[in-house]
Amino acid sequence: ADGFDVDGPGFGGGKQIRDEESGYNKNLFRIPKHYEEDLERVFIPHGLILDRTERLARDIMQDMGSHHIVALCVLKGGYKFFADLLDHIKTLNQNGDKSVPVTVDFVRIKSYCNDSPAEKISFVGEELSTLNGKDIIETGRTMKALLSKIKDKKPRMVKVVSLLVKRTCQSPGYRPDYTGFEIPDKFVVGYALDYNEYFRDLNHICILKENAKEKYRM
């Protein structure tokens, strides 16, 4: 077995990566030279991310494809997933028997310093007034705080899409409606996920070396 299992009901239909799964040798992939010494392993290759994202787009359109959708991106960590997900939704809109308007909005949340969640969650420059009475797809993390803000705008429907859900004892038990991958409690970077703003320019999701945390620590 390769460590990837499709979850049953209650896990958002995500692919489950087992605790013992260590990923792939980074030498099998193209890694930017400025990060070669900082990464332990490639955890989820870029191609697998894109394939999973395409399936999520199909599921979303099947469930919500009869409504005007406002796609809300959580910045900065969600921008790559958001862009690729919207590309797949756009393709389905163009090639399917039916299509719906999709508009976009953005909210920026700052909740991490180094590799630990910050005590205070900061919403930076959010503009959520466009959500009134709309159906929403949201991508990103720190859902409880953001969903509380969104609820005040009285949208007709809210669906949460998250590329990653981490199995951790600190989890509040919240599950998104759509999940790309359920992963062990590992600190990962890449595909717009950062460590103090570094590694967003890495295509694959990778495991960071412990000494790299000290190298880039604020």
Rank of each mutant, 00 (worst) to 15 (best):
S22N: 11
T179Y: 03
D59M: 05
L85M: 02
S122E: 14
Y79N: 06
N211K: 12
G14E: 07
I17M: 09
Q94C: 14
R200M: 10
R30S: 13
I49E: 03
K110C: 07
N93V: 04
E20L: 10
G3E: 02
I49F: 08
R175V: 13
D115E: 11
A118T: 13
K215W: 12
K153T: 04
I121N: 00
P9G: 02
K159G: 05
R167G: 01
K154P: 09
D59C: 06
G47F: 10
S66N: 10
K215R: 13
F11R: 09
R217Y: 05
Y195Q: 05
V107C: 14
H204L: 01
P45Q: 10
K151H: 14
C113P: 04
D105C: 10
F199M: 01
Q170F: 08
V124L: 14
H46P: 01
R55C: 08
Q16G: 02
S171C: 05
I44N: 06
K153L: 10
A1Q: 11
E119A: 06
T139E: 10
K153W: 07
E54M: 12
E37P: 02
E36Q: 14
V124H: 05
S99R: 12
K134C: 15
P45F: 08
Y112C: 05
V107H: 08
K15Q: 12
D2P: 13
